[in-house]
Design a protein around this nucleic acid. Structure first.
Lengths: 215, 215
DNA sequence: ACCTGAACACCGTTCAAGT
DNA sequence: ACCTGAACACCGTTCAAGT
């Protein structure tokens, strides 16, 4: 038992049973050990959670730095989304750790550089980079049909209940809502869901590039 | 003691001390009553949280339905952001309740209608409406300097620590990150932060409008 | 260096009992 | 109809003690 295997085990628990299922006692059980044993390796639960977040961020792929702003921003967000989708339940741990992890810093630095290079003042570049991270985050946590806030075993019932509720609405007052009900409950194509959101955001950012600064 | 005053008290606790501070026992104390007394009015804690979420959504202002897509979408997001900013710590309770509350349904229905009217297929309209909600949400929860995940009394230290850490980075490897450090830790102008994000998203959505469907 | 055992101050919640 | 009291199964964590 060492910090690395503890983190790996903790991440596995989170992946399988959600963030709430990660308790000090649960991890200890996994090693056939007293809860207090973990406090030798981690000063407290928060430190363990931080390490789990770091482990997720470490899986981040870095886009080619030679890409231009539009392409880089799209790749950066895709890269973020991909790593978060591989551990959706651990996603809430990531934002606090991104800038404390090598890969996250690298990605942010390069994103900022592309934005500044395109004429964004540093404050606005900073805001845009922040938006990009938060949107990637929220897309994963809020993916219709894959909500991390609902436990896996309760998902199907929750979806049916939500669908039934939307379909029970008055067709006079809420025709669009009723028509959209199935796609609000579970998204038809996950990849499409992410691609579309990223495209919208990236295109939106490009509308903010001042015309007189093309280099 | 009735459900309404319990919800109001719960919301006040959340506003003042964060979501984690909302415990059944804490609310009971506020009324000088046993924790179990609350179970007469709410079947469990989740039901209380739902009611708090509903109370927040009830404060939602509805934009003028006569606006066109671009204006309406901007107003809708601004409206969402405004109501969430008035209870930032309660924000995580909102997404699950939006479609279960009159005001939320109204806003979503009208947003979908504008999108469909502009030529979006219903599935894509549904996705875009979902993005808009989630982005409003994440902007509030993740506002630099106002993170709801950090307790009010620990915020200033947390900011200083984060700033110091960013500034301690190598200027050779992370020049942009260092330059952006102050604006990453706390955002200079909150209103600007929200306005910019909304503008980017709305402009991005407008790039998706197919040119042959202007009515 | 690494782990145990007992204890503490918290949780949400059930169930029977009071008025 | 509305609330209490005692109890249960959980939390994270401290502190002293073991090997």
């Amino acid at each position: 038992m060492n910090p690395d295997v503890v983190v790996a085990t903790a991440l596995r628990i989170v992946d399988e049973q959600g963030l709430d299922a990660l308790t000090v006692r649960r991890v200890a059980d996994e090693f056939g050990v007293t809860p207090m044993a973990l406090y030798w390796h981690f000063s407290n639960k928060e430190a363990l959670l931080d390490a789990v977040g770091d482990a997720v961020v470490a899986g981040l792929a870095l886009p080619d730095p030679a890409l231009d702003l539009e392409a880089y921003l799209g790749e950066a967000m895709t890269s973020l989304v991909d790593v978060l989708r591989s551990h959706p339940h651990a996603t809430p741990l990531v934002p606090a750790r991104l800038l404390l992890t090598e890969a996250g810093r690298e990605l942010t630095e390069c994103t900022l550089d592309k934005l500044v290079g395109a004429g964004f003042p540093i404050d606005k570049a900073s805001a845009v980079a922040h938006y990009a991270l938060m949107i990637a985050l929220t897309l994963v946590v809020g993916e219709p049909g894959a909500e991390t806030s609902v436990k896996p075993d309760e998902r199907d019932e929750a979806h049916e209940a939500k669908l039934a509720l939307l379909l029970s609405l008055s067709d006079d007052r809420y025709p669009r809502l009723r028509a959209a009900a199935p796609s609000m409950v579970v998204c038809g194509d996950s990849d499409d869901y992410y691609e579309t959101a990223i495209e919208i955001f990236v295109k939106g950012v490009m509308t903010q590039v001042s015309p007189d600064s093309a280099g």
